[in-house]
Amino acid sequence: MYETIQYDVIQQVATITLHRPAKLNAITLQLNAELSKALKQASHSDDVRVIILTGEGRAFCSGQDLTLASDDVDYGDVLRTSYGPVVRAMEECEKPIIAAVNGVAAGAGFSLALACDFRLMSEKASFVQAFVQIGLIPDAGNLYYLSKLVGHAKALELSLLGGKVTAEEAKALHLATKVIPEEQWEEQVNAFAHQLANMPTKTMGLIKRNLKASWNSTLPEFLEAEANGQKIAGLTNDHKEGVQAFLDKRPPLFQGN
């Protein structure tokens, strides 16, 4: 069904693997189309409670496949029609999305990782804000998320100087949730994903929604959004289960709704 990515669901964790290892998983129009389709599939599937985005082989994703660039391409339209839908699909997804950054994430590959909720980084992985080196501005939502994650000054520094960020540096900048030694990579990524898969999924979606609402709201607007969010969370089975488990002094068993 997919050619440039792989899509697997195991124990409520959907793993989307960028799968062009010979090209360091460079992004093509087809890959973007398949990625946004897979993200929507995982968002809407009742069997999925967590999404992992990762890359096959040495790299996470080396960004746009530049071998496909040509003079008559309108970059604006490529962003509107090809990257835009991917970023929006991630933004609209209410399930937690983990970027399992197994190797280098450069250019738009870095952007994809930034749009995720968590970035788990292999110790040999790195981020490369490569755009300025080819005379382009960071795209695919890059600056929107980067400035929120690391602040304006650091975002500008990384983008103008076009630097590489090692896993350890990324951790210090709060870009990486966790840096994982290579020999424990799969084990720790899976443990992190399964921990999230057993949490109150609906509520986590509402937390994401509310945190994002805070970006563009006045305080009165935000307080209204918060009241709505808590009303919805209060109606979930997981809320009842959480309270009951607390009273029973046992660990809660969340169903995700």
Binding site: R209, A225, N228, G229, K231, I232, L235
Partner: peptide, 10 residues
């Protein structure tokens, strides 16, 4: 604009 879950209720 209202969250979809509570649109009708609100």
């Amino acid at each position: 604009l209202i969250d979809e879950e509570v649109l009708l209720e609100e």
